[in-house]
Design a protein around this nucleic acid. Structure first.
Lengths: 148, 148
DNA sequence: TACAGTTTGATGATATATCAACTATCATTG
DNA sequence: CAATGATAGTTGATATATCATCAAACTGTA
């Protein structure tokens, strides 16, 4: 069996971890109290204000349970409030607070710079090819007749 | 700001997560009681029998604390034993048990099949290009003068 | 309308990630 | 040899991942 560092999935894990560490450090350095995962959730709500927690989970491909807990944290941090939903009493209205919006605004230039730095010297074409490649992996890993 | 699904790092996260879910399912289906992360640690020890916990952590780019806890679990599961190190009393000798070796053996065909399935229809050349691409991201995210 | 099945969300248990603080041991050097 | 600094590993706290189970509310249909 090959050594781990020759396996593509290993490089894949390493790259995303390094990017996350790097990006989180930049956020911390700016004294913004949020994790990348919390930001993903908050951003999903901003993009689709009437989103449900289940939809958020699918959006950021996280577990429903994780989303529940992350939302609790965002409420604790006063970035988000929960109100009753007008038509469905199982659901909540997730409303980003002023503080939450301010954090989202402050994050824009940081995240943009992070992505730019991480993709420095890589062309648009390379990036697109890579995305296509990764999407084929995603397709191949879908549960299907072949691997149930 | 772009929607999340247009961001490369998002696709990157998704692909590694989908691969992990898929691969873990195959392991579970074979009734092998191990997680992928535990396997990574066990495999590191098999590859380098005199490895230290710090080296393991670097090998699989995990935190030292995580490695400590994963090793505890592997010992509990009787896949690994800890003995005193001959020359350095701070360290441990990590020895894979018979049971551990048996699990490692049983995993070889499963992991091989997983990787093959996930990379189905992707050529060696594409894979190599992709690895190079990811390595450039890793380089770009290294802490340096530009982003401290 | 009443029941069955589905959807939304919460919670408990376990595994891992990350940071910080801590102990024990080793290595260096004055 | 003693003081200092480096290294190996542990532990606590908090965040997240995953699975299973649960309750409440909704929907469709007999």
């Amino acid at each position: 069996m090959e050594k781990l560092d020759q396996v593509l999935f290993f490089t894949l894990e390493k790259s995303i971890k390094k990017y996350r560490q790097f990006a989180q450090k930049q956020i911390d350095s700016a004294n913004i109290d949020i994790t990348i995962d919390q930001w993903l959730v908050l951003k999903s709500i901003q993009d689709l204000p009437d989103i449900s927690q289940h939809q958020i989970a699918e959006n950021v491909f996280k577990d429903y349970a994780s989303v529940t807990r992350m939302i609790e944290l965002l409420v604790k941090k006063d970035y988000l409030t929960r109100a009753f939903h007008a038509t469905d009493r199982r659901r909540f209205n997730l409303i980003i607070t002023k503080k939450g919006n301010s954090v989202l605004d402050k994050l824009i230039p940081i995240i943009t710079a992070n992505r730019k730095q991480a993709l420095k010297s890589l062309t648009k074409e390379e990036i697109e090819k890579n995305r296509a490649f990764l999407n084929r992996i995603i397709e191949n890993c879908k549960p299907g007749i072949g691997n149930l």
